[in-house]
Write a protein that binds this DNA or RNA. Structure first.
Lengths: 144, 144
DNA sequence: TTCCTTGCAAAACTTTTGCATTAAA
DNA sequence: TTTAATGCAAAAGTTTTGCAAGGAA
């Protein structure tokens, strides 16, 4: 009874089951629901938002399972955990490299695609280290 | 009895009192000690680290005062609060614009000066907004 | 049966807050 | 004296954990 129209083949419940199985993640009911919600489109959700969504949709899920599942998904590279403001973690279903706008007023996060940013100079990584990734957050305020 | 050698004129307790007064921040004993610790050099400290430092130095300070003071300093632009990992806030005594290396193994933060990074392209801010700041964190792992 | 997952509650952490006491101007 | 800051403990918020019960293989 979840979305499963042909046009949503890879984002509905069945498509999500595949994606989980492919990662050797057992597709339990809760995991599939969380995946169907979060992976249906590129978006940024908090654990609490996911819990609220699922419960208001009638699902029986515990807070612990939401956190366990999000950490599990992140460990398998299905989602990415963001640290944008200190208040809580945000989970990004877009795992392709990209950056973010952060609206300081609304708290909204907006994806910035890689080609929109170009570095003409970057510092060398300190000796013995290499760059594992670059996080770029462009803070936005209301224009005066 | 705090540092007050000529060579530490602006980082010792007396210099800190000046910096606080200049911001219309009443230079109480606790605030001066926190400022003397944090503002003595460019560094990144957590609230808990500051509390531990001060207490092991024999100061009587409460956790609430440390947090109140750090928030106060940040509100006056004396320090900057960083969100690098989700675990806790880091307070940066370097308020000049700059970026950071973040060593994923040790958790260490290293300043990256502005001239070390050059953007040859940046996305336009969405309509009605303007860029308030850019946070760049270069994650480092051990070189293989 | 065996192993893994879930739910619940409690714990762990970081940060904030309320309020009586203390210190600063 | 009047106002503001401190300390303490408790509260608030997010995330983790322990453990018994439930579900999948």
């Amino acid at each position: 009874m979840e979305l499963n129209a042909p046009s949503a083949a890879l984002s509905g419940a069945t498509g999500c089951e595949r994606r989980l199985s492919d990662c050797a993640i057992r597709p339990t009911a809760q995991r599939v629901r969380i995946a169907a919600l979060l992976l249906s489109a590129p978006q940024h959700l908090s654990a609490e938002q996911i819990l609220a969504h699922l419960r208001s949709a009638g699902a029986r899920v515990s807070k612990a399972t939401v956190y366990n599942t999000l950490n599990l998904f992140a460990a398998h590279g299905l989602i990415r955990q963001l640290c944008v403001d200190g208040s809580r973690a945000w989970f990004d279903s877009n795992v392709a490299p990209h950056y973010h706008f952060h609206d300081l007023e609304s708290g909204a996060l907006i994806d910035v695609p890689i080609p929109a940013v170009e570095f003409s100079r970057l510092p060398p990584a300190p000796p013995g280290t290499e760059v594992a990734g670059i996080d770029l957050v462009i803070r936005l305020r209301k224009k005066m």
